[in-house]
Amino acid sequence: MPSGLAALLDDIAGITKLAAASLDDVSGAAGKAGVKAAGVVVDDTAVTPGYAMGFTPDRELPIVWKIAVGSFRNKLLFLLPGALILSAFAPWAVTPILMVGGAYLAFEATEKIIEAFAHHEIAGEEVEELAQSSAELEAEKVGGAIRTDLILSGEIMAIALADVADKPLAVQAAALALVGVLLTIAVYGVVGMIVKMDDIGLHLAKGGSRALRGLGRGLVKAMPVTMEALTVIGTAAMLWVGGGIIVHGLEHFNLTPVPHWVEAASHWAAQVPGVGAVTGWLATVTCSAVVGLIVGGAIVGVVHLIPRKKAAH
């Protein structure tokens, strides 16, 4: 009996060590993959606050929460199983799907730019938006945010998957789930703080020390500038992420002229003494954004201009 108990304890110790090693593998893989996906996380954080603009203060956090729940659903119910299935049975399909997502991001960003420079053409749309009830407008904004999040989350999961592709399936699944959960909490926690920045400022401005009151007034005054800057950053981020996905996809399929031009521009810009890493990165981002703008402009033309010509005829 004692020998049987000792054997059982040995088995339990072995299982515990195996579980600990697996946890180390999962946390290590998740950490490494999460760092590589950080660039897309910044884009997601910049894009999302704009969807909560224009609503009463009591609806801002509930809107952010709805988008966060949609993001969890995107990552854990759709993208995680889809990524594992594709990795196991159709790894060739990952790049084309990502390229389609990149083209969609480029299209959305290009539409925003066109709208910003053509106010008179979208006046009718603004009137239609005003005619909507707040509930309808909220549902539309949340739906748009979740669709955009699906593309950005897909890029995050794809980057993470590429980093854990050599791991066992269980480790891949656990690492991707951990990356998805932690990055979603981080992104929407920051987004919630951004959209409530003016309310926090008002609260600070009403009491406390002179320094806190000054900080509160500064937060309130900075809110419009911050939201405007985030709108610009978010649009630019959608362009360079979408364009970057397309460039990498072209390189993957050996359609090399455009990727070679981007690489050459980045290499040339990286030669600047002292700041080569920064200028090289800026060159890559700018070239990717130009590619995104070209692709997005072509899609906008197909989606909007051709139907208008048919209507005119």
Rank of each mutant, 00 (worst) to 15 (best):
K75M: 04
G143P: 08
L79Q: 03
L76N: 01
L77E: 02
G82M: 05
A83F: 01
T95M: 11
E129F: 00
E121Q: 14
H119T: 15
R73G: 02
A158N: 06
V69E: 02
L152Q: 03
G82F: 02
A118M: 11
L76W: 03
E140Y: 12
M157T: 03
L76G: 01
T148Q: 13
G101S: 12
I114W: 06
T95Y: 13
I122H: 11
A103D: 02
A123L: 09
K75L: 03
E115A: 04
L76D: 00
V69K: 04
G124V: 08
E115M: 10
A109C: 09
A145C: 14
H119W: 14
S87Q: 04
Q132N: 08
A123N: 08
A93N: 11
E111W: 06
V127E: 13
H119I: 11
G124T: 15
I151D: 00
T110F: 15
G143E: 05
A123D: 06
G144L: 11
A103Q: 02
I151V: 07
E111I: 10
A139D: 11
A116N: 04
A88C: 08
A131D: 15
I114T: 09
R73S: 05
H119S: 09
A131E: 08
S71L: 06
E136Q: 12
E140R: 10
G70P: 01
F72V: 01
L150D: 09
I156Y: 01
V69G: 02
N74W: 00
F107I: 11
H120D: 10
D149P: 05
